[in-house]
Design a protein around this nucleic acid. Structure first.
Length: 724
DNA sequence: GAGCACTGC
């Protein structure tokens, strides 16, 4: 209790409670560490505000939901799972007594699918809203519908008592949240953060964003900081695993050199510990970050963006910020996911700098110039505007939200992103050509999978091969299972090991390899050891195992029409598995080109692509004809990853569907619905002209961009001439 | 002949 009352939020207890009491919606803002996440739910509970139902608090991450629930139950002196509980995937720690429930945003979204009015909650708190995760953004719009008119749209009034909604966020961009909820009040809690001084390592003259030599600059700034500055750990933000590993090597070498030349470096700092930090790092190695450094040892943590939000590193006084991040975006024009290195946003830069001021005043060194900073976007583009939306759109359709274009988004995605999602859903027969959800769509939405994988799984049940397909689908939905070490010797060893696993799968398809890995690991006496010996990520495999269990439960509840005839039953298991894969992934079909090396995709884009070198079928192109793939990635070339040969006979009846309906026609169904529909005679003419006008718009946009580029280049040429 | 940031159901 003593530590609790010291939190900045304690002073505002009464004011906060009455604010919540008086308002339908409220935005609460305060820096990390002010105690809002742990204290506010307790205040509300103790004030009796949660009597009509639970107080639900969403978090973007599992770890946060679990650990916060632990802390709060301890503070309240109750056992976890009673008054205070949590729910994350695979782990429901709640009971009928639970009054305060911490959960992931994804979990609440799932719950909303079964209970459109969230009838078991009296208050919903959307925490960490500034992070703008896809699920939280969707929850913004969905919960708003539950609020009484005129705030909500009045479409859902079935709740016997109105829901209260609280949005919690760091201090940035809070006004927008309030505006979204009809200018609801904003409650600000002062935080406890130390000042961080900002230093730009470049001037405009010395900084060239096109030059990627910033790694050597990183090394120099880190070593300078180490040599010249007082105690405190150094946190370096880079973009990816490889970059981090090579930077750690570099730093290690130059630290050795300096050690040799100077003997003792800095009065208070006797040595260095150089620690890499990124998501796929084994958990034990990540744990080293949580341990405080030994006295006199300075830690240099070289990290991806994971240290900006997900992992808290204590003791950091110096932050070195590269200014870049790796970010995944979906390109609706090509249908490709692109993982690219892009400049961070201003708010991301602030977030990184803030990591230096958690325990003492700190310093942030930005490896760019002031004007580069000025040119950055204010905020990162929210995930909902970057991600593929097919799952979210299907969720909407199943919740009875018929018009997904007019839905109230905090930041609406581009219409072509929505159109692309509708098209995908139509391909899978999850919606019909009028944009209405089909019975298959209602089944697909039950699974925590990408829609195409749900379809694979459902087909496998009707072909009676789900025991083999379940692990495959699970393995496809976890992060990459193959470990690729950076050292040469180990890299060779890992390749040998992976070759053997491909052999074990029969060498026929990459999906078969995944199944073989799953089976072999399960059969081995010591899974962890087996994984280490075979260069397979144990963590991913464990997750896949849990997913298999979860999917099996859901699949058992589904009624699947058995189209399994005598003939099908007589077919070998491998055939049936491939047929299931083909049925779900047919929009990812590709055909061998006449050059007998490359493939052309059948998704309408007719992209030229190659089988990825890591595939078991790499080098066997000549013997193939039709394949389906799980992923298409644009790296050195356009590659198809995880592929499987299929028969033309399996795809030929499915493929026409890829050309049956136009994405914008589906969008039109959405728009028509918002007008009240029924304008039948316009059906023929409307969509075409709409499509044309959209194409025109697109063209105009492209032209404008091209002109901008041209002008920019001309200006740069001019400026450089002027300089010389 | 490659190279995957981070979450979540």
């Amino acid at each position: 209790m003593a530590s609790q009352s010291k939190l900045p939020i304690a002073t505002y207890r009464e004011a906060l409670v009455s604010s919540v009491r008086e308002n339908q919606t409220l935005v609460v803002t305060g820096e990390t560490g002010c105690g809002k996440t742990t204290q506010l739910p307790q205040f509300l509970h103790e004030a009796g505000l949660g009597e009509g139902g639970m107080i639900g608090i969403t978090q973007p991450r599992r770890m946060a939901a679990i650990s916060v629930a632990h802390r709060v139950s301890e503070e309240m002196g109750k056992s976890l799972g009673g008054t205070v509980g949590y729910q994350v995937r695979f782990d429901d720690c709640t009971s009928p007594d639970t009054k305060i429930k911490y959960m992931t945003d994804g979990c609440l979204l799932r719950e909303l699918l079964d209970d459109h009015t969230l009838s078991s909650y009296s208050i919903i708190i959307l925490d960490e809203a500034h992070e703008r995760s896809l699920a939280t953004d969707v929850l913004f719009g969905l919960t708003k519908r539950l609020l009484p008119h005129p705030l909500g749209d009045g479409s859902l009034k079935q709740r016997d008592r109105p829901l209260k909604l609280i949005v919690m966020s760091a201090t940035l961009d809070v006004k927008r949240f309030s505006e979204f909820f009809d200018n609801c009040p904003i409650f600000t809690i002062p935080g406890r953060v130390y000042p961080v001084s900002i230093h730009y390592s470049f001037t405009d003259e010395t900084f060239d964003p096109m030059k990627t030599s910033y790694l050597s600059r990183v090394e120099q700034v880190v070593m300078d900081t180490h040599m010249e500055k007082g105690p405190g750990d150094i946190l370096v933000f880079l973009t990816g695993q490889q970059e981090i590993e090579s930077m750690c090597d570099k730093l290690f070498k130059s630290a050795e050199r300096i050690d040799y030349e100077h003997d003792v470096l800095c009065k208070d700092v006797l040595g260095l510990a150089i620690l890499p930090l990124y998501g796929s790092l084994p958990t034990e190695q990540q744990q080293r970050i949580f341990k405080q450094s030994e006295r006199g040892i300075r830690r240099i943590i070289v990290s991806t963006n994971i240290a900006a939000t997900s992992v808290t590193v204590d003791g950091v006084v110096y932050v070195i910020d590269s200014g870049y991040v790796k970010q995944l975006s979906f390109n609706p024009r090509t249908g490709l996911d692109v993982l690219a290195v892009v400049p961070i946003s201003k708010s991301e830069a602030e977030q990184r700098a803030g990591r230096a001021g958690r325990t003492a005043p700190g310093e942030c060194h930005r490896l760019y110039s002031q004007s580069f900073y000025n040119s950055l976007n204010q905020n990162t583009i929210p995930e909902i505007q970057r991600a593929s939306l097919s799952s979210v759109i299907l969720d909407f359709k199943c919740m009875g939200i018929s018009n997904v274009i007019e839905f109230e988004y905090l930041d609406p995605p581009e219409e072509r992103m929505i159109a692309e999602a509708l098209k995908q859903l139509y391909y899978f027969d999850a919606i019909n050509d009028k944009g209405q959800v089909t019975p298959l769509g209602r089944q697909i939405v039950q699974f925590p999978l990408q829609p195409n994988l749900s379809r694979v799984l459902l087909k496998s049940k009707s072909l009676e091969c789900e025991e083999a397909v379940l692990p495959i689908v699970a393995m496809l939905s976890v992060e990459n299972v193959f470990i690729r070490p950076s050292s040469k010797k180990q890299a060779l060893e890992s390749m040998e090991a992976h070759k053997e696993l491909q052999e074990a799968g029969g060498g026929t398809s990459d999906f078969a390899t995944l199944l073989a890995i799953y089976k072999l690991a399960m059969e081995s006496g010591n899974q962890k050891r087996w994984c280490r010996d075979n260069y397979v990520h144990w963590r991913s495999l464990k997750t896949a195992q849990s997913i298999v269990g979860q999917l099996k439960n859901i699949l058992n509840k589904q009624e699947v029409l058995g189209d399994s005839t005598e003939e099908i039953r007589a077919a070998p298991l491998g055939e049936r598995v491939r047929q299931s894969l083909c049925f779900g992934l047919f929009s990812n079909a590709a055909r061998l080109a006449p050059n007998r090396r490359s493939f052309r995709t059948m998704d309408g884009h007719s992209t030229v692509a190659f089988i990825h070198p890591s595939s078991v079928l790499f080098g066997c192109e000549d013997s193939l004809d039709w394949i389906v793939y799980h992923e298409i990635v644009d790296t050195a070339k356009t590659y198809l990853r995880t592929v499987c040969p299929v028969r033309y006979g399996w795809v030929k009846d499915l493929l026409p569907r890829l050309h049956e309906v136009d994405a914008y026609r589906l969008s039109d169904c959405e728009r028509k619905r918002s007008l009240g529909g029924e304008e039948e005679e316009k059906e023929e003419e409307g969509p075409v002209s709409k499509k044309q006008s959209l194409e025109k718009e697109e063209k105009e946009r492209e032209n404008a961009l091209r002109l901008q580029e041209k002008a920019k280049a001309a200006r740069e040429r001019y400026l450089s001439r002027k300089k010389t």
